[in-house]
Amino acid sequence: TEHYTFHTEEQAQRAAKKFKKQGLPVTIHEKNGKFTLQVN
């Protein structure tokens, strides 16, 4: 499991699309105004 932190939801969504294209499951969590992208 890898985690990436982004300052905006837009950045997180863009990164999520790249991972999803590779067939990886992705979840985004919002915490304290930051967005954490979790790749399993």
Rank of each mutant, 00 (worst) to 15 (best):
T1Q: 10
T1H: 13
T1D: 09
E2N: 12
E2I: 14
E2P: 09
E2A: 13
H3L: 12
H3W: 15
H3R: 12
H3M: 13
H3V: 13
Y4K: 04
T5G: 04
T5K: 05
T5M: 08
F6E: 00
F6G: 00
F6S: 00
F6M: 02
F6P: 00
H7Q: 12
H7V: 09
H7L: 12
E9D: 05
E9S: 08
E10A: 12
E10V: 08
E10L: 09
E10M: 09
E10P: 05
E10W: 12
E10N: 06
E10R: 11
Q11A: 14
Q11K: 06
A12L: 03
A12N: 00
A12P: 00
A12G: 01
Q13R: 13
Q13A: 07
R14M: 10
R14L: 10
A15E: 05
A15W: 10
A15I: 06
A15T: 04
A16C: 10
A16N: 00
K17I: 13
K18S: 07
K18M: 12
K18T: 07
F19A: 03
F19Q: 00
F19T: 00
F19R: 01
K20M: 14
K20E: 11
K20V: 11
K20H: 08
K21H: 07
K21N: 10
K21V: 08
K21P: 02
K21E: 14
Q22N: 07
Q22S: 07
Q22Y: 11
Q22C: 15
G23K: 03
G23S: 03
L24E: 03
L24F: 11
L24S: 04
P25L: 15
P25D: 15
P25I: 15
V26L: 04
V26G: 02
V26H: 03
V26W: 04
T27P: 01
T27L: 07
T27F: 09
T27G: 03
I28A: 01
I28P: 01
I28Y: 03
H29P: 00
H29S: 11
E30R: 09
E30I: 09
E30Q: 09
E30A: 08
K31Y: 13
K31H: 13
N32L: 05
N32S: 05
G33M: 02
G33I: 00
G33K: 03
K34D: 04
K34Q: 10
K34W: 10
F35V: 03
F35W: 15
F35R: 02
T36W: 14
T36N: 06
L37N: 01
L37T: 02
L37S: 01
L37W: 02
L37A: 02
Q38M: 13
Q38H: 13
V39K: 02
V39Q: 02
N40T: 11
N40S: 11
